[in-house]
Amino acid sequence: MDWMNMPLTQLHRTVANINNAEVAPLLTAIRERLDAIEEVGLGYLSLSRESTTLSGGEAQRIKVIRYLGSALSDVCYVFDEPSAGLHPHDVHRLLKLLKKLRDAHNAIIVVEHNKTVIDAADHVVDLGPGAGISGGAMGLLKV
């Protein structure tokens, strides 16, 4: 129960100190997930936090991590503003995870307003300079 309430960064340190050959594969999988959670700046979360209380950006980043653990490939993933709520200096961490998912032979579609994320895209589809009746002009750009 104590582990449920501690921040994931602290849980990561706790799990790192466990050395038991009988559960080594499980510990490796847990450490990899906790590494990824810290990479996207979510180390402050705890396991006791209900998923319904996560912001949209937090939920998107958790999804990226979950999908990275999947053995699936040739899948099209769609993320809606995964950088929302992320500190600007942590955006590169998110991009690393998205690229890992892409490099596992998947298609990644990201709906995003963050210029850093847009600049990292292989292709950009611009849906217009404004919202509503001001938008809608579509163009495909190679970035």
Rank of each mutant, 00 (worst) to 15 (best):
I37N: 01
D35G: 10
S83H: 03
L127H: 02
A21T: 11
D35I: 05
A29Y: 02
R61H: 02
V15H: 03
N5V: 07
E39C: 13
P88R: 06
P25R: 03
G69V: 00
R102H: 14
G132Q: 08
I65S: 00
M1P: 10
T52H: 14
L34T: 01
S73F: 03
R13F: 07
L11D: 02
K99W: 05
P25D: 03
L86F: 04
E50V: 06
D119I: 08
R49S: 11
D2V: 08
N5G: 12
A71E: 11
W3I: 10
R61I: 00
L141M: 08
A84R: 05
A21V: 10
A71M: 04
N19P: 04
P7Q: 07
D74Q: 12
E50R: 14
K63G: 08
S51P: 04
H87N: 11
I118V: 15
Q60G: 10
R61L: 01
E81W: 03
V15Q: 03
A29S: 13
P88V: 02
K142Q: 13
P129Y: 06
T53D: 14
L98A: 01
V23N: 14
R49V: 11
I62R: 04
A131T: 13
D119Y: 06
G69T: 01
I30R: 05
R31L: 13
A21M: 09
T28E: 15
L141P: 04
D90R: 09
L101G: 00
L11Q: 11
P88Q: 06
L27P: 09
D126H: 11
V117N: 04
Y44R: 06
G136F: 08
A59S: 13
E22G: 12
V125H: 07
A121C: 08
G135V: 10
E39M: 12
V124E: 11
T9D: 14
A104V: 05
P7H: 05
A137I: 07
P25Q: 03
L97C: 03
L8C: 04
D119E: 15
K142F: 09
E58L: 03
L140Y: 13
T14V: 06
I133K: 12
